[in-house]
């Protein structure tokens, strides 16, 4: 099976100036993004920012209005079936295959990948192993129509990765998961990324999830990428403000500061032993994200996009 030539470096996704408009509404106004091999990248953004549209363009399910898009070295809109075999897509289904069982469905859908197996990448995954990995062994032979929402989403994830993809797209994969299922899912993503070297692009609304999973976070607002960096870098550079709470005897105080260490040193110098309690709370990714989105939605549209790290 001839493979498309690898891109110039190890970029699995390369997007420049991606635009998408429906009629006169511009959903994407010029998205630039890259994902390198083995990276886990999280796309954040408010509802309607164009996350799903972006992912669907990359999956080859939607034609962009303009822009340069390369995924695994090919234009997804024109890519062939061999390309399709290297890409995994986790879809949000709702009532399909109600009479089937998860095992039967995975065996059926996995079969399509068998002709694309290579020595270093056997395809598809063993169904029993996969059922175990997504924690579905106990409902493997139940009718899919009787599964709960969370169980169904695990099946969606299993279907998305059955072909051992080199690149995986996940659009809000953990919506409707309970905390345990969410934790299991995070473990699975780490496993795919660490053991299999799978590159992953996911969208989510859950900032804790993004922080835990992502090597890099992209924030999509107003139709373009407004921030791009590691969770740490984003948190440090954008919000910058930490909250310091302390108590002297019975009195409690709160103060916001950019320079925690200097401020706390000052506190000790001033109060010494009178200081009875001290708590420093760094801005969370959520604070950062909200501040960022607010800034953009408040009309700072002419402001330059934030470049945190590259």
């Amino acid at each position: 099976m001839p493979r498309p030539a690898p891109p110039s470096d190890d970029r699995v996704i390369e997007v420049r100036g991606l635009r998408m408009s429906y009629g006169s509404t511009e959903v994407l106004t010029g998205v630039d993004l890259t994902v390198s091999a083995g990276e886990v990248v999280c796309l954040l953004g408010p509802n309607g920012a164009g996350k799903t549209t972006t992912i669907e363009v990359l999956e080859g399910f939607r034609l962009p209005s303009a822009g340069h898009v390369r995924v695994l070295g090919a234009d997804p809109a024109r890519a062939d079936d061999a390309w399709r075999a290297r890409v995994g897509v986790v879809l949000q289904s709702w009532r399909d295959h109600a009479r089937w069982t998860p095992r039967r469905l995975l065996e059926q859908l996995g079969g399509y990948y068998a002709p694309y197996a290579t020595a270093e990448r056997p395809r598809p995954y063993d169904v029993d192993w996969l059922l175990d990995v997504v924690g579905m062994t106990e409902f493997a032979d139940r009718r899919i129509g009787t599964l709960s929402g969370g169980q169904r989403r695990r099946l969606d994830v299993a279907v998305g990765i059955i072909g051992r993809p080199e690149l995986l797209f996940l659009d809000e994969p953990t919506a409707g998961f309970d905390p345990q299922a969410r934790r299991d899912f995070h473990d699975l993503v780490h496993r795919l990324s660490d053991l299999e070297g799978t590159s992953i692009l996911l969208t989510t609304h859950d900032l804790a999830e993004a922080e835990r999973l992502a090597d890099r976070i992209l924030v999509l607002a107003d139709g373009r990428i407004v921030a791009d960096g590691s969770p740490d870098a984003l948190t440090r550079q954008v919000a910058g403000t930490s909250e310091v709470r302390w108590a002297c005897g019975r009195e409690r105080f709160v103060h916001g500061t950019d320079d925690v260490v200097a401020f706390v040193r000052g506190l000790f110098e001033q109060h010494g032993d009178a200081l009875t309690d001290l708590e420093v709370r760094h801005a969370s990714l959520e604070d950062t994200y909200l501040a960022m989105v607010q800034r953009f939605e408040a009309g700072a549209r002419s402001a330059p996009a934030l470049e945190v790290t590259r």
Partner: peptide, 20 residues
Amino acid sequence: MEREDGTLLRHKALPHGMQG
């Protein structure tokens, strides 16, 4: 129905899925 419930989309995401 299968256009609406995602069966077809699942096959579109597979290599040669529509033929199957």
